[in-house]
Amino acid sequence: MKIEYNRSAEPPAPFLDITVFDPAHPSERRIIPAKVDSAADITALPASLVQALALTQTHWLKVAGYDSQEAQIAVYDAAIEVAHVRAHIEVIAIPEDYALLGRDILNQLRLLLDGPAHTLEILE
């Protein structure tokens, strides 16, 4: 299945819809867009969603940003479903209304990014 890049991003960016839930309350699920971010070691969810699902904090992590400055940030227990993958992972929170899909999830998927065509394909 080919998915169009999100053209409101500049330049256009590959996004996937993901399902997020608290493993302790699997019936309360949210589907949100997630930007494919192979530079991120860890997946990040919108802070508003972390709050809405009342995800449980499980650790404090050290995170280094693009400027190599380190920050200690909270990590939460979350379950994510994308395509055929279901993962129980630790996530961090960001002040955005979309998620960033890091390599903890991406390394479980086979993706084909067709930049010139602005499409993303999930290979089975």
Binding site: D37, A39, A40, D41, I42, A44, A47, W60, L61, K62, V63, A64, G65, Y66, E70, A71, Q72, I73, A74, I92, A93, I94, P95, E96, L100, G102
Partner: peptide, 12 residues
């Protein structure tokens, strides 16, 4: 140290 090259994180 997790690498997360993104400008906005929510710090402690």
């Amino acid at each position: 140290v997790y690498h997360f090259p993104y400008r906005k994180v929510i710090r402690r």
